[in-house]
């Protein structure tokens, strides 16, 4: 099945089985390996990308649904100020350990901050619970979301 869609602002056409998850199209056809595979069942969030502005689990997102859509991955996250703030906060606080889950964490954090510029602890916890981290970096993820939110608020003033 031929699919035309846009990834990080660049148009792409792929011809793959319609049930092929967006994850594998990104990783194998477009060689964008920043989007990670962790469970294949939308249970861990490592594969989170944005489709038309919505955070989705790309491992459970058949490519047929991506027809004519705008996809943003970690490789393109810094193209807007929220994404940039998230990535910078993650680096500033050395959130990563093994790092495998972190692109997905950043994609979720950016989706959260787009909807809520001042999330409290409960909102952060409830919005980030779909992203597993086996290394257990949760404390720093919370701090980084707070830092990104603070920097965005201050930058907007």
């Amino acid at each position: 099945m031929k699919i035309d869609f846009t990834v990080n602002g660049k148009p792409h056409t792929v011809d793959v089985a319609p049930d092929t998850p967006l994850l594998w199209v990104l990783r194998e056809h477009l060689e964008l390996t920043g989007t990670k595979f962790g469970c294949g069942r939308a249970l861990c969030g490592a594969c989170t990308v944005h489709v038309d502005g919505q955070a989705v689990r790309s491992c459970a997102y058949p490519i047929e649904y991506a027809q004519a859509s705008q996809v943003q991955t970690i490789e393109g996250l810094e193209s807007d100020r929220i994404g940039e703030a998230v990535v910078n906060a993650w680096i500033d606080l050395d959130v990563v350990q093994c790092g495998w889950c972190q692109p997905g964490q950043c994609m979720s954090a950016a989706a959260l901050l787009k909807a809520n510029q001042s999330p409290d602890r409960e909102a952060v916890d409830a919005s980030m619970s779909g992203n597993l981290c086996r290394c257990g970096t949760y404390s720093r993820i919370r701090q980084a979301v707070d830092l990104a939110a603070k920097n965005l608020r201050e930058g907007a003033e």
Binding site: A42, A55, A60, S108, S127
Partner: peptide
């Protein structure tokens, strides 16, 4: 759902057998 965890982060308009969603 919550931001970043909207229902359609995982649920599409049809059942997905491979992902069991």
């Amino acid at each position: 759902g919550m931001p970043a965890m909207h229902c359609n982060a995982c649920h599409r308009s049809a059942n997905q057998e491979a992902a069991q969603v």
